[in-house]
Design a protein around this nucleic acid. Structure first.
Lengths: 340, 340
DNA sequence: TTGAAAGCGGTACCAT
DNA sequence: ATGGTACCGCTTTCAA
C-alpha cells in the first residue's frame, strides 16, 4: 500500500491548532496574537513564538471558517457578464474595486453567464456576501433581490439602466444617451435618423433604452426614428450600407464608437459621404473616434457622484434598514466633431 | 423599544435547522433531501415536506459552512487585473468560465490590483480554492505558488508569458508575437524596425517579451530593432510622429492593433506614407484593423489546445501529484493586408 | 426511514 | 497573561 511516498497528495493544510501546538500555546492565544486583538494582553515573547510558528508552517487563516464563526463576511460580490467595456464602465469598475479594498472589503467577481436571473442570485447568495453590486448588463429581479436580502446581504445595489424594486439603484439611465445623440443631430438639421441596434447578445439592456431615448427626443421635433439592426462584422455593415439609400436616412446614431466606426467605414466604402449625405454619431468618447476621418462625433458620459461609490456602498452596508436609494448618475453630453 | 417595526435590520438568515423544524424532521434529513443523497432512502412525503419548507423559508445553503465541513471546495479562483483585452483573451476567458461551470466548479474572479504578488497569493489562499488560474498580466512567484499549494490548492496554473516554478504553465510565449511581426517585415524588405513599447502600467509582461522576440528575429537577418515608447494618447503619438524621420525607421511593429491605429493615424497626419515610407504591423487581428485605410497588417494569435482548458484543469485537480505541465500554447501567424 | 452527535477551522466569552 | 470551551452551518457516520 505505502510503497510510493505520495507526499504531495496528502500534505494537510496547517490550521491554527497546528500553530498553537508548535508554539506551545492554546488556539485562543493564536487567534489573539494573529488578529492583534486589543482587548487582551499577550506577552511579547509569546507573541513572537506564535508569529514564528505561523510563519514556519506557512499558516494562512481559513476565510470561510472565520466568517462562519463571525456570522458575517466582508465580501462584496460583483456579478460579471459580457463586458460592456467603454471607458466609463472600465473606470467605474477599477475605482470601485480599489475603493472597496481600501475600506477592507474583499471584492469578488462572479461570472454569471448562462444562468437565469434567479439561479444566478441563488448562486451569489450561497457565498453570503455582505453586499452585491450588479453592473449594467446583468439582470436582477425583485425576487433575486429578496433571495439576497434573506441570505444576509446588507446592501443590494444595481448600477444598470433600470432600477429594481427592493434594491438600491444607482441608475445609469441609458435613454439619455439616445436623446443626447438625437438632439445633437436635430440641432444640426437632420430629420431622418437611424439608430443602430447591435445584434450581439447582452447589448439590449443598453440598446433598447437608447432607442427609447432617441424616440422621445425625435417625437418632440416631429423627426423620424428608424432602428437599424447591425452585427459587429464587416459583412453585416456592408449589407446595411448597400441598402442605405432605400432607408432614406440623413443621420445615424450608431450605438457606440465601435459600431460607429464599423458603419462609417461601410458607408464610405459604399460611396455615401459622411457627413454630407449622412451624419454619424457614436457614444463613449473613446480614443478611436478621434482617430477616424472624419473625426467621429460622439456622446460623452460621466457620473454625477458626490462621493466615491465605494463609500456609498460602505454606508449602505452600515445602515441596512434604510429605504432603497434611487439616483440617476449618468450625465451625457454630445461632442461635435466632424462626422455630424 | 419595539415601536418601530424595524424588520429589515434583524431578520435572521434561515438555516437548515429552520427548515428541519418547519418540516418536522432532523437536520440530517434536510441535508439528505436537498442534496439528493443516493445512499439513503427518504420517503416521498418527507422529501416533499422538506422541499416545501425550504422553499417557503427561502433557504439557501451556506457555501462556506458546506465546504468547511467537506474539507474542500470546488472554487476555482481567477485573479484579475488590468484587462489585457484582445479577442484571444476574451475568448479564452469566456470559454474557461463556461467550461468550468459545466464541470460544476464555482468560478470566482479576485481583483488583485495594488497588491504585491505574495500579498495577493495569501489573499487567494484564504479562500481555499481548489484551483487557481493566473492569467497573463498577474504575477505569481514560486513562493506564492507554495503558499497556495500549502493551503490546499490542488492545481496552480499560470497562463502568463512566463512559466513559474512549481506551477503548471500553459504558457503563451509572447516572444512569438514579436518575431512573427518582424519576420513578416523582413520578408517584405524592411530593415530598420521600430517596436512600440506602451507606457501604460501592466503592459510590460507582454511588451517586453514581444520586444525580445522581435530582437531575436532581427538578429538573424542583421536588421536593426529600436524600441519606441508610446502612451495611448494622441499627443504622445503626435510627438513620436514628429520625430519619425530622425529615428530612421522603415517599419514598425506597434504592439497591438489599437496602438497601431493610433500610431498610423499620427504618421499619416505627419505626412509619412504608410506603407510606402513606413510599414505598420499590429497584433490581435481585431476588427478595427480591417476598417482602417490602408488595412492594417497584423499578427493573429490562437491557442493550440487539444482539449478545452476547463477539462485540462479538471484533470489537474484530480491528479494533484502530477509534475507541473509546461506547454506553449500560443500560435501566431502574420496576416498581410495593406499597411506593410 | 430517520435522528443524535461529532467535527470542519476559527473566535470570543469566562475562568483561572 | 493564558487556557478551556461553546458555537457558527452543514455533512456524515453510526444507532435506533
Amino acid at each position: 500500500m505505502s510503497q510510493l511516498p505520495k507526499q504531495p497528495t496528502e500534505v494537510s493544510v496547517p490550521t491554527s491548532a497546528d500553530v498553537a501546538r508548535l508554539a506551545g500555546v492554546s488556539r485562543a492565544t493564536v487567534s489573539y496574537v494573529l488578529n492583534n486583538n486589543a482587548t487582551v494582553r499577550i506577552s511579547e515573547p509569546t507573541r513572537r513564538r506564535v508569529r514564528e510558528a505561523a510563519l514556519q508552517l506557512g499558516y494562512v487563516p481559513h476565510a470561510a471558517a472565520r466568517s462562519l464563526r463571525a456570522g458575517h463576511s466582508r465580501m462584496v460580490l460583483l456579478p460579471s457578464g459580457h463586458i460592456p467595456a467603454g471607458p466609463l464602465h472600465h473606470y467605474l469598475f477599477e475605482e470601485l474595486q480599489a475603493g472597496l479594498r481600501r475600506l477592507d472589503y474583499t471584492v469578488v467577481q462572479y461570472g454569471s453567464v448562462g444562468l437565469t436571473a434567479d439561479e444566478a442570485a441563488t448562486a451569489w447568495a450561497e457565498l453570503r456576501p455582505v453586499a452585491v453590486v450588479v453592473p449594467p448588463g446583468i439582470t436582477l429581479t425583485p425576487h433575486g433581490t429578496a433571495i439576497l436580502t434573506r441570505s444576509g446581504a446588507k446592501a443590494v445595489i444595481t448600477l444598470g439602466p433600470e432600477p429594481v424594486p427592493g434594491a438600491h439603484g444607482l441608475v445609469m439611465d441609458q435613454r439619455r444617451v439616445g436623446s443626447s445623440a438625437v438632439e445633437h443631430l436635430l440641432a444640426r438639421g437632420r430629420r431622418h435618423i437611424g439608430v443602430v441596434m447591435p445584434q450581439e447578445p447582452g447589448r439590449s439592456p443598453f440598446s433598447e433604452p437608447r432607442l427609447a431615448g432617441a424616440r422621445r427626443a425625435a417625437e418632440q421635433a416631429g423627426a423620424r426614428i428608424r432602428p437599424v439592426p447591425l452585427r459587429f462584422e464587416e459583412e453585416s455593415a456592408a449589407q446595411v450600407a448597400a441598402d442605405w439609400e432605400r432607408l432614406g436616412l440623413d443621420a445615424v446614431f450608431a450605438y457606440n464608437d465601435e459600431y460607429a466606426m464599423l458603419l462609417m467605414r461601410a458607408l464610405q466604402d459604399a460611396g455615401i459621404a459622411v457627413p454630407a449625405h449622412t451624419a454619424v454619431v457614436g457614444a463613449d468618447d473613446s480614443l478611436i473616434g478621434r482617430l477616424l476621418r472624419p473625426r467621429l462625433s460622439t456622446v460623452r458620459m460621466d457620473l454625477a457622484m458626490t462621493r466615491p461609490l465605494a463609500e456609498t456602498i460602505d454606508r449602505m452596508v452600515q445602515h441596512p434598514g434604510a429605504p432603497p436609494v434611487r439616483h440617476d448618475l449618468l450625465r451625457t453630453v454630445a461632442v461635435h466633431r466632424e462626422s455630424s
